[in-house]
Design a protein around this nucleic acid. Structure first.
Lengths: 329, 329
DNA sequence: CTGTTAGCGCTTTCAC
DNA sequence: GTGAAAGCGCTAACAG
């Protein structure tokens, strides 16, 4: 910068002003700009960060990017940040609480301007009050942190309604959930609500996600076999597309037809190869991942005003994925 | 830091030494450490970065994280960096050259310590000689940049050999490739090599990846239909799992059985739901993504020594994914 | 081994 | 308008 000033024959402050778009005489701005070009000058992020305490960096703390839902979320967060001229510090914490906290501290040390977190542990207590943070889905008891999530309650209702619309009489719910409370717990509430609304008897698996999920599904299936080998349910609302897919394979393996015998609707809207065109694994209640990501970024930037809602719910959509009978009425 | 020094009753330099692990009298180190704790002091990354010109930041420039291969690569890069105490700046360039260059400049401005790139355009000329960089797969003509890739040649040979081993007589190759040269071009060489080695007549699609791939596949299929409706090939080596999966669906749609009529082996080793347990989309030549990522990071750190190989090829493995007849001999 | 001090490159008063 | 100068928080060189 000194060099630029010398080259342009102006003072340091003038160069700084040009860079930051502060009014300067046209003549000087020209001189400075050409000098910048000839010298290939670029501002030093550290010096600037040191001075103005702003990094344009946002940390995303997420379990991993393997999972296609997280992968997609990450992608959209990155895009949303890029649009705002910000950069993404990616932190994959594998859902390990200690790692999540490590990353949190790291993010703070690196003077990120904000944090977007999709974590398992309760990170609320580890984070200073004045660092903007937005969490996806999860609910932390000890501090009010703005949350963004899909409308899980409405999504679950929609799943049941769609199953009914496509001819199901007995939709069940297969829920394998996290131990940590979050907005996705509302899928259960939504299912129960829909059951009561449509006079259905609720019937579900409702356990913590674990290694034995396949055998638990198998048990569930066996318990619902009638004497004649048919099933006492004809529709499945699965907690996630993944679980829906697993359950579908189990059904197929047992000789049942999907969607002829049993229709399945999952949740998330995960696409094969991360590519919407290749379709879903199962028919699904799709989370608006792009909008969720954009909302997270938007709220993060608005943080200074205390007008940030503590919960923002975005609407979900049903999409066909091969495991329902759209035309089967 | 000043506060810590005052609290501990020592000089600034002493505090700095404690932080950086430079020998200090035991008494003073104690004092400083407790002072750090009571004041919740944390070093300012910017000030340090400004001083020592090191950020512990590495930029990964990648098309996106939607694609499960990229997603997995990103995940492993992140993990490898974390192990070395470094952080990941994620840049999704969507394969858009201008965006790739933007990100490159951004990375430089942010004083990253290195760049790992999986890009489409030729970024070689935009990057200063003294910033460590490693590229995955791609080959740039105008500058020698260390590359890491899978052994695509051997992988293609392996694919053909496996198809033969499982009973195929006429394996074809379905190649939809990028316009940019890279190590994955060697899959073609490997296929041709294997054909000549086993006295097979090469037969393939070999075009640039495009929107019309499905209809091109269909054309290929039609051209290989015998009078009796059977096919003149019985094995497919697909350029990627994705293309293999597409081709499989086409075959199924046309009434052929996989793997009974046609066996398919893809390339990459992409798993459903990013979860190895759920299996592959097709039988595949799997790239050792974790090792590739670790090698990239390792080479990036070794960069100062000029002993970095210009090309590092890692071995691939065959894995069953439902589209081959392991036991079909 | 300890304390003092000169910057790293930038922004931002503050006089002019 | 413009230029000079004071730091932002840290490290490293140096003198004690």
């Amino acid at each position: 910068m000194k060099d630029v000033a010398r080259e342009a024959g102006v003072a340091l402050g003038t160069v700084s002003k040009v860079i930051n778009g502060i009014p300067v005489s046209e003549k000087n701005r020209q001189k400075v700009e050409t000098a910048i070009k000839t010298l290939h000058y670029e501002v030093n992020t550290y010096a600037r960060g040191l001075k103005i305490q702003k990094s344009n960096l946002v940390a995303l703390i997420i379990p991993n990017t393997h999972n296609p839902f997280f992968a997609s979320f990450t992608d959209h967060i990155e895009a949303a940040l890029y649009k705002k001229g910000m950069k993404l510090l990616l932190c994959c914490a594998d859902g390990i609480p200690q790692k999540e906290i490590d990353y949190l501290n790291m993010a703070v040390n690196n003077k990120v301007d904000g944090i977007i977190a999709l974590t398992y542990s309760d990170i609320g207590k580890y984070i200073s009050q004045d660092l903007p943070i937005v969490v996806f889905d999860r609910f932390f008891e000890n501090r009010v942190i703005p949350r963004v999530a899909s409308d899980n309650f409405a999504g679950a209702c929609l799943a049941v309604e769609k199953l009914l619309e496509f001819g199901c009489k007995h939709p069940v719910y297969i829920r394998f959930h996290s131990v940590f409370p979050g907005e996705s717990d509302k899928r259960m509430d939504g299912y129960l609500h829909a059951c009561s609304k449509y006079n259905l008897t609720p019937d579900y698996i409702n356990v913590i996600d674990c290694e034995q999920k396949l055998s638990l599904m198998k048990d569930f299936l066996d318990k619902h076999k009638n004497r004649d080998g048919s099933l006492s349910f004809d529709g499945v609302f699965a907690h996630t597309d993944y679980h829906g897919y697993l359950f579908m394979n189990l059904l197929l393996q047992e000789g049942f037809k999907v969607p002829e015998d049993v229709q399945i609707i999952g949740f998330d809207g995960v696409s094969k190869f991360g590519n919407a065109e290749e379709g879903l694994f199962v028919s699904s209640i799709c989370q608006p991942i792009e909008q969720l990501a954009e909302k997270c970024v938007e709220l993060l930037m608005t943080q200074d005003t205390k007008a940030v809602p503590s919960l923002t719910l975005l609407p979900v959509k049903y999409r066909y994925g091969g495991t329902t009978r759209e035309t089967g009425l």
